[in-house]
């Protein structure tokens, strides 16, 4: 009976695993198949198996039709800059909210919590108007010039997304539960608040930094609506809007799958690299609840 129950549980887990893995496997396998084979295999197990006429043509077409390496480089720059700046800025604010006493702290905390419920779609239009009026300083023909606006640049995809109320709150929760005795001992030794943050809090908060890094990475790597609105030129285009090149009068699903596979790999790699810390951090946060 016990074995049967165990077998049932495994079968159920297998089914769940299949449901989650199917889209990923289908995407990767289809990226190596010609259009006709993709549709011929659609309703059989062959759809997720590397069988039939496998080819790299779809990938060749992706590289020929789009500047995917440039988009890739842009996404890496945007994502890494935002994540690194975000880890610093968000954790620093969370540190001041959780470990320091100053007037107005509760109001700021309330504002951070309140901001978490506002989605990007709600602020995207006013944000666009704002950045379109902000000039940047550039270098042209041997001199500094004030450029028209932030639009069409890498910074317009980085700076508005560095501070994030949800990540501040995650850091706040984690920092709040670290005993205050550490701070007091450091203060007695003459440490400044930044030294406490740098040498005591940060080293003790690896899991939450990993969690925020992953979540922020995913958020930035998958940015779609904002780059479509704020970036027109290829020079600053990230990977996600680039896929739209392949949707037109004639849609080639093989090429779309190849492009999607190519841009999904880094996300998988980052998740797998941080998986242990990510899970332990989430579990830890749950226990502390």
């Amino acid at each position: 009976m016990k074995h049967l129950r165990k077998l049932g549980a495994y079968l159920f887990l297998l089914l769940i695993g299949y449901v989650f893995l199917f889209p990923l496997l289908f995407m990767i396998m289809s990226s190596f198949k010609p259009e006709q084979v993709i549709f011929a295999d659609l309703y059989s197990i062959r759809a997720i198996l590397p069988v039939g006429d496998l080819t790299l043509d779809n990938y060749r077409q992706v590289f020929e039709k789009s500047d995917v390496l440039l988009y890739f480089r842009n996404s890496i720059l945007i994502t890494s800059a935002t994540v690194i700046l975000g880890l610093f800025v968000n954790s620093l604010l969370a540190f001041t909210l959780s470990r320091m006493r100053w007037s107005g702290r509760k109001y700021i905390l309330a504002a951070v919590v309140a901001l978490m419920i506002i989605p990007i779609e709600a602020i995207v239009v006013p944000l666009l108007l704002l950045v379109s009026k902000l000039p940047t300083i550039g270098w042209e023909q041997g001199g500094f010039v004030l450029m028209g606006s932030w639009l069409n640049s890498l910074e317009v995809q980085i700076l508005p997304f560095v501070a994030n109320s949800f990540f501040i709150f995650l850091f706040y929760q984690f920092f709040r539960d670290i005993p205050k005795d550490f701070d007091e001992a450091a203060e007695l030794d003459g440490a400044t608040p930044f030294q406490i943050y740098r040498h005591i809090i940060v080293p003790m908060s690896g899991p939450v930094f990993a969690t925020v890094a992953i979540l922020h990475f995913l958020l930035m790597w998958n940015q779609y609506i904002w780059p479509i609105m704020a970036v027109q030129g290829e020079d600053a285009r990230p990977v996600m809007p680039g896929i739209q090149i392949f949707f037109g009068r004639q849609t080639s699903w093989g090429e779309i799958m190849a492009y999607a596979s190519f841009v999904t790999l880094p996300v998988l790699a980052v998740f797998l690299a941080f998986q242990k810390k990510f899970v332990s951090s989430l579990a830890g946060a749950g226990i502390k609840g």
């Binding site: 027109q232 809007p241 949707f247 037109g248």
Partner: peptide, 19 residues
């Protein structure tokens, strides 16, 4: 060159921003 799938949204956003 702006991807066809998101072209109209991009134009509308640019018009909004006067760009």
């Amino acid at each position: 060159m702006i991807p066809e799938g998101s072209y109209t949204q991009t134009v509308t956003a640019a018009a909004l921003a006067g760009d």
